[in-house]
Amino acid sequence: MDWTLEVVLLPVSDIDRAVAFYRDQVGFVLDHDTRTEQMRVAQLTPPGSGCSIVVGDLPAQQEMAPGSMRGLQLCVADAVAAREELLGRGVETSEITVFDERDGGTFFGFSDPDGNTWAVQQLKVRGEKPLIPTEARDRFGAE
Rank of each mutant, 00 (worst) to 15 (best):
S68G: 09
I15Q: 11
V41Q: 15
K129V: 03
V26F: 09
A119C: 10
D100A: 01
D57Y: 04
A119W: 15
T45D: 02
A42G: 12
Y22C: 08
E95I: 01
F110T: 10
V19N: 10
V54T: 07
G115D: 03
G115T: 03
P46Q: 05
E92A: 15
R17H: 06
E6V: 11
A65G: 02
D31T: 11
I15T: 05
A42Q: 11
E84G: 04
D57K: 06
E85Q: 13
G88V: 08
L44P: 02
L9G: 04
D24N: 15
A79C: 06
R102M: 02
L87Y: 00
M69K: 14
V98C: 10
E85H: 11
S94V: 03
S111N: 14
E6S: 11
E128K: 14
T134S: 02
R40P: 08
V29L: 09
C75L: 03
F21K: 12
P113Q: 11
N116I: 01
N116H: 07
V91D: 04
D100F: 01
L10G: 00
A18T: 06
V125Y: 10
T97V: 11
G50P: 08
R102Q: 11
A65H: 07
V54Q: 12
V120E: 10
E84V: 05
P133N: 05
D114H: 10
F108Y: 14
L123E: 15
F140L: 13
V7D: 12
R137M: 12
V76C: 14
F140Q: 13
F110A: 03
E135K: 09
R89D: 02
M1F: 10
A81C: 09
L44M: 13
E63I: 00
A81M: 08
Q43P: 00
S94Y: 03
D31K: 14
G67K: 13
A77Q: 14
V12F: 02
A18K: 08
R89V: 02
P133H: 07
G109S: 15
V91H: 03
V55N: 08
P133A: 00
E95W: 01
L87P: 00
T106P: 04
D16I: 01
P113V: 06
A81F: 10
F21I: 06
E128R: 14
S94W: 07
V12R: 02
G105C: 05
L74S: 12
L74Q: 12
T45Q: 07
T4K: 14
R126V: 08
I15E: 07
